[in-house]
Amino acid sequence: MVELKVNGAVRQVDAAPETPLLYVLREDLQLNGAKFGCGLGQCGACTVAIDGAPAFSCLLPVGLLAGREITTVEGLGSPDKPGPLQQAFIDEQAAQCGYCIAGMVMRAHTLLARNPSPTDDEILEHMSPNLCRCGAHMRIVAAIRRASSRKEASRSQRGAL
């Protein structure tokens, strides 16, 4: 039995301590936002927040996470009530196949929590570990800009990097 704190709730999971967090989230907790891309920390599809910092859940055994605060994309809102960052992704239509998006949202979330008005350079720098195979990058950046508290953030600026 492993105890995990996920999206504010304490969850008991019947999993071996070496099981990657990603598997537990998807298979035991039915939190299917985070995706399996590479399993090697190279793509970011599995990104979640651990105590407010971005982490690759494919490379984190649950046994190492006692007492840590885990946030997944489901923790930011629901399809009926999306959170502001999720709404910004919707408004900018920032997805193609969508496979990378939960990871993108979570990585962006950790940036905005610590720096509500990042510059474009800061956004690119922070987001660089996450890959998007569809090439939705410009819209993803536009969504992050929209969700930021930057004054000039607006749809008309999409792509103007």
Binding site: G41, D51, A55, L124, P129
Partner: peptide, 23 residues
């Protein structure tokens, strides 16, 4: 370890946020 954007080279994720100093 990062490789410049668009470059070919080693990528290793950092664990500053996910592992504790003790770990």
């Amino acid at each position: 370890i990062r490789t410049p954007a668009g470059g070919f080279g080693p990528i290793m994720p950092g664990f500053a946020g996910s592992l504790t100093p003790q770990q």
